[in-house]
Simulated scan of single mutants.
Amino acid sequence: MKAIVQRVMQASVTVGDEVVSSIGRGLCVLVGISRNDTVKEMEYIVRKILHLRVFEDDQQKRWSKSVVDKQLEILCVSQFTLMCTLKGNKPDYHESMAADQSKVFYEEFLSQLGKAYAPEKIKDGKFGAYMQVHIQNDGPVTIPLESPVTTQKESQKKEADTKGLASASSCDGTT
């Protein structure tokens, strides 16, 4: 599971001409769900989003308060393109969870965020819709998060790809 967390002054999601969700100061989180994600990955990302210290305290000391500490809102947007791998210049989305499963997983993710924080502070876009996300990034502060299992699987895949390239080059006589 991956998330791109942005500290924002305001953010909103529009579908067509309709604003479906908006927040003031807080976090806008783009969420990518892998086909291999489980509740364990979800819990990790929820915990990180809620406790990530990207806000200042009352004395303006930076990096000392979380969204929970400041009682701010979170706008989440499901974004399967975060699970993209490139095949040459073409995006490949085979690592993304299938849409029907992903919708259920994403809804549970939103529910878990609400249970761990405050349901009324959690907003989201419209799953599967063509959306425009309007973000006024604050700082700018943008933090990428990945669950450890996703990171481990990607490292293993890269290692396997590297070994495959090394084998191919040694087989054809090139160095």
Results as ranks from 00 to 15, higher is better:
residue 104 V to W: 02
residue 109 F to I: 02
residue 83 M to S: 10
residue 72 L to S: 04
residue 108 E to Y: 11
residue 99 A to I: 09
residue 45 I to F: 09
residue 87 K to Q: 12
residue 75 L to E: 01
residue 53 R to M: 10
residue 65 K to R: 14
residue 47 R to D: 14
residue 69 D to M: 05
residue 91 P to K: 05
residue 77 V to C: 02
residue 88 G to T: 01
residue 72 L to T: 03
residue 70 K to V: 07
residue 93 Y to S: 00
residue 79 Q to V: 05
residue 81 T to W: 01
residue 101 Q to W: 04
residue 90 K to A: 08
residue 92 D to H: 03
residue 46 V to M: 04
residue 107 E to L: 06
residue 107 E to Y: 06
residue 55 F to G: 07
residue 97 M to E: 00
residue 107 E to T: 03
residue 70 K to P: 06
residue 103 K to M: 03
residue 65 K to G: 13
residue 90 K to G: 06
residue 105 F to T: 00
residue 47 R to T: 15
residue 88 G to I: 02
residue 89 N to V: 14
residue 99 A to K: 13
residue 71 Q to S: 14
residue 55 F to Y: 06
residue 101 Q to R: 02
residue 65 K to F: 10
residue 104 V to I: 08
residue 84 C to K: 15
residue 79 Q to Y: 06
residue 63 W to E: 11
residue 95 E to A: 14
residue 82 L to S: 03
residue 103 K to E: 06
residue 105 F to W: 01
residue 78 S to V: 02
residue 64 S to H: 15
residue 48 K to T: 09
residue 106 Y to P: 02
residue 59 Q to S: 13
residue 60 Q to L: 15
residue 109 F to R: 00
residue 107 E to P: 01
residue 85 T to H: 12
residue 72 L to A: 05
residue 83 M to L: 10
residue 85 T to G: 10
residue 91 P to C: 05
residue 93 Y to P: 00
residue 67 V to F: 11
residue 62 R to I: 10
residue 74 I to T: 04
residue 69 D to C: 08
residue 55 F to T: 07
residue 73 E to N: 13
residue 89 N to W: 15
residue 97 M to G: 00
residue 54 V to K: 11
residue 90 K to F: 08
residue 70 K to S: 09
residue 60 Q to W: 10
residue 98 A to L: 08
residue 95 E to Y: 14
residue 74 I to K: 07
residue 82 L to P: 02
residue 88 G to D: 01
residue 62 R to A: 13
residue 78 S to W: 01
residue 49 I to V: 07
residue 58 D to S: 09
residue 107 E to K: 07
residue 101 Q to M: 03
residue 55 F to C: 08
residue 53 R to C: 09
residue 102 S to G: 09
residue 92 D to C: 04
residue 54 V to L: 15
residue 102 S to C: 11
residue 55 F to K: 06
residue 93 Y to D: 02
residue 74 I to D: 03
residue 105 F to Y: 02
residue 93 Y to V: 00
residue 93 Y to M: 00
residue 63 W to C: 11
residue 50 L to Q: 00
residue 76 C to N: 06
